[in-house]
Nucleic acid binder design. Structure first.
Length: 740
RNA sequence: GGGCGGUUAGCUCAGUUGGUUAGAGCGCCUCGUUUACACCGAGGAGGCCACAGGUUCGAAUCCUGUAUCGCCCACCA
């Protein structure tokens, strides 16, 4: 006689069950029962080891765990490769905030000291994160757990860097880039965002012209006036004509440039340019071979070229400069309500100052020396030809659209937390880089760290002080993890599990991550990194608001698990939400799913009680129930239909549909109809045996179908059924066979 | 400026290739505590599927347009 409590108590089950799974070794595909040849691999997007878990983690774990458990039950050699991410810039920002609270700053610290502290910080977060994944029921292979700063990973990242450098795809360029004053680093275009501001727009007299600007503080170096070649107002001037103009700090000699990028309708239709601090101006200067002068230093202060304003922060200098120009009679008019977008740092909101600072770039559109197309074109054609499929399809369009206007990718960051760039420079040459007068021009790529002297002049070498953009290393994650396993553990993971089958991640990192993985994988391995990409949405609160600390609506998934159980949380996250759409999650929904778990518990309770009451014990899992009564016929037909539809939905990544079908069948067909009918049938001696078989067979099938979604309660019930001989043989449910 | 998407029950959302009376969760109303479950059961109310036109034997589903909300990318000195 097996007694079950009247309601399901997840607190007594989850920890115990997870331990059973982990001890079984079945998370590791090498230990799975049977002769499994066909791999099914999901590389886990490594969570950032810098902050507590949020519902986004719960969502990705739920989706990936559902899929990997399903494939495991279907007999695949299922590998879910876990890992955590050092998350370079993200983590450094978090850590610097922490320092700030303590009244400290990295700019007052030694690099080694800073690195050590942030390393310890990340290590402790890493453990918290890994335990969180366990509480969410993640059936990933902890034997293969890996970290983005593991030496094996760094080795692979360096090899990629060297190959790119040898292939001419990785170059160091004096190009204009986004500079954040607060974080003192360059950022890629993806790491900046636009904010609308209303600022004054000034018109100044500049020689015979009127120019317009919202940034007078950049105008010190102005010595070019650019106008449209078709501008009839200035037909008398030719390209290259010069003139004298009275300007901020006295007269300047200016040259006329004609170029059709100028919009005659905007402002005064004529502009001066600041190539060091503006993308368009920079391009123009490159095109016409114009001088470029730095006006603002990397701390946001004006340089000596600003004369009396030198050393001032731009925001302070701006009104003073306007005042001076006004007093000289050069201010024509001011438009106070000029609305425009300013580029700001996506982390701190500081205005981004474009600066020419040497950076490492990856060429996106340059064909490979081995005859293959460029990184961009390889990735674009993979998506276009459906070699890599994105679920849902709308993201393929977004992906292609983004690819069209892709520029070279700056991968060096002036931060300390990350993988150092394995390059050395001739010391004398490096110090002169600012003047672009290097003696020994070539940087020395030294991935083994065994080159001591400059190969050019035998002089001293200095290390590149920069680190890689995190996405440069995580862009290699699918093959780097498997290759690193092989180095570390002597496995043949890369051979056995690559290309992987699925990449599951949020749509918000489609460009940051997915695009880079596709490009880098084709480049390094000649193969796609994964067959399919499943993109999930953002978890929002019940009012569709984004969850954020400042709004105070962040939900801690572990607290939800404490209250309602992991299975309820997982089911609520999946239920009634389709791929790629954001998910509003209300507590009521989670509560409802807890009720469903309880319903299932009580169904099992009823079946067990029936089996006990009616003396003839039976073997359930193998016995095919016979449809004798109308109720038998209907439930078995509906069960069969449910198996079919659920399987179909699983194959097509319609997890929400699968979940709904199981829910519907369990509650409204099996519990409401058949369980009720069985009460009568069990009193009939001729029917009771077959009725019991039908009950247990249906229940067992439900447990299997539901297991990927609600792994804990189903495994617990499976174990209890096993003890009562309702199950003929009982290994763990997680490795049982998916019903056909 | 370029691109993508949403608009279905009071709320939040499903609806797989066009096919019978459009579904779920939560909420609401009525009744019910008979040994699986009150974290429950029985029953019920509630939708011109944004609008207009078109294709079709048949449209929430396909096409065109309109309105409205949202997202992504780029960005004018």
């Amino acid at each position: 006689m097996t007694e079950l409590t009247t309601s399901y108590d997840h607190t007594k089950v989850e920890e115990k069950i997870y331990k059973t799974w982990e001890d079984s070794g079945f998370f590791n595909p090498d230990n799975l029962p049977g002769d499994r040849k066909q791999p099914y691999t999901i590389i886990m997007p490594p969570p950032n080891a810098n902050a507590p878990m949020h519902l986004g983690h719960a969502l990705f774990v739920t989706i990936e765990d559902i899929l990997i458990r399903y494939k495991r039950m279907r007999g695949y050699k299922a590998l879910w490769q876990p890992g955590t991410d050092h998350a370079g810039f993200e983590t450094q920002v978090v850590f610097e905030k922490k320092l700030e609270k303590e009244g400290r700053s990295r700019f007052k610290m030694q690099r080694e000291e800073f690195y050590k502290e942030i390393w310890d910080f990340v290590q402790s977060n890493k453990h918290i994160t890994e335990n969180g994944l366990r509480r969410l029921g993640a059936s990933c292979d902890w034997d293969r757990n890996i970290f983005t700063l593991d030496p094996e990973i760094i080795k692979i990242v360096y090899a990629t860097f060297k190959k790119m450098h040898d292939d001419g795809l990785m170059y160091r360029g004096d190009r204009i880039g986004n500079w954040c004053f607060k974080h003192q680093t360059a950022l890629s275009d993806l790491e900046t965002k636009y904010e609308e501001r209303t600022e004054p727009f000034y018109y100044f007299k500049y020689g015979p012209f009127t120019i317009g600007t919202s940034r007078p503080e950049t105008k010190f170096g102005d010595k070019y006036v650019v106008m449209h070649p078709d501008d009839k107002r200035y037909a008398q001037y030719k390209n290259g004509d010069t003139f004298e103009a009275e300007w901020i700090n006295g007269p300047v000699k200016a040259t006329i440039i004609k170029d059709s990028v100028v919009d005659m309708e905007f402002g005064s239709g004529v502009m001066t340019i600041t190539p060091w601090h503006d993308q368009i101006d920079f391009d123009l200067a490159q095109k016409h071979k114009l001088d470029k002068e730095q006006i603002i230093d990397k701390f946001g202060k004006l340089l000596p070229i600003a004369g009396e304003f030198a050393g001032m922060k731009t925001a302070i200098a701006r009104p003073l400069i306007v005042e001076k120009l006004k007093s000289k009679g050069l201010l024509v008019k001011v438009d106070e309500n000029y609305k425009h977008n300013v580029n700001v740092c996506y982390k701190c909101g500081t205005i981004i100052e474009p600066q020419i600072i040497p950076q490492w770039f990856v060429a996106m559109t340059k064909p490979l020396p081995d005859g293959r197309p460029s990184l961009r074109d390889m990735a674009a054609s993979a998506i276009k030809n459906k070699e890599v499929e994105i679920v849902t399809e709308k993201f393929e369009k977004i992906f292609m659209h983004w690819m069209e206007s892709l520029r070279d990718w700056p991968v060096s960051r002036q931060i300390w937390w990350g993988i150092p760039i394995p390059v050395k420079y001739c010391k004398t040459a490096y110090q002169q880089t600012a003047n672009s007068k290097q003696q020994c021009k070539e940087p020395v790529v030294d991935i083994e760290n065994n080159i001591d002297k400059c190969p050019g002049c035998q002089g001293e070498l200095v290390n590149d002080p920069d680190t890689f953009d995190t996405w440069f290393s995580s862009g290699q994650w699918p093959f780097a993890t498997l290759m690193a396993n092989d180095i570390k553990r002597g496995t043949k993971d890369f051979e056995n599990f690559f290309p992987t089958q699925l990449m599951e991640t949020g749509w918000d990192i489609l460009f940051f991550w997915v695009a880079r993985m596709v490009m880098m994988s084709y480049y390094r391995t000649g193969k796609k990194p994964f067959e399919k990409v499943y993109l999930h949405g953002l978890v929002r609160d019940k009012d569709r608001q984004k969850m954020s600390k400042s709004k105070g609506n962040v939900v801690d998934p572990l607290a939800v698990i404490d209250t309602y159980g992991c299975d309820a949380l997982r089911f609520a996250l999946i239920f009634s939400t389709s791929a790629g759409n954001d998910i509003p999650l209300a507590e009521d929904k989670i509560k409802g799913m807890k009720h469903f778990a309880n319903k299932l518990w009580n169904i099992a309770r009823f079946v067990l009680a029936a089996a006990d009451t009616h003396a003839d014990r039976l073997r359930g899992s193998d016995a095919e129930p016979k449809p004798i009564t109308l109720a038998d016929k209907e439930i078995l037909a509906k069960l069969k239909g449910t198996i079919k539809s659920v399987t179909g939905h699983m194959e097509a990544f319609r997890l929400h549909e699968a979940a709904q079908d199981i829910y519907q069948f369990t509650w409204y067909e099996f519990a409401d109809v058949y369980v009720e009918a069985s009460k009568k049938q069990l009193t009939d001696d001729k029917l009771k045996h077959n009725t019991l078989i039908t009950l247990s067979y249906s229940l067992i099938t439900i447990l299997k179908l539901l297991h990927p979604f609600m792994p804990f309660i189903t495994e617990e019930l499976w174990g209890i059924l096993g003890q009562t001989e309702l199950l003929a043989k009982h290994d763990l449910l997680m490795v049982s066979e998916w019903p056909e």
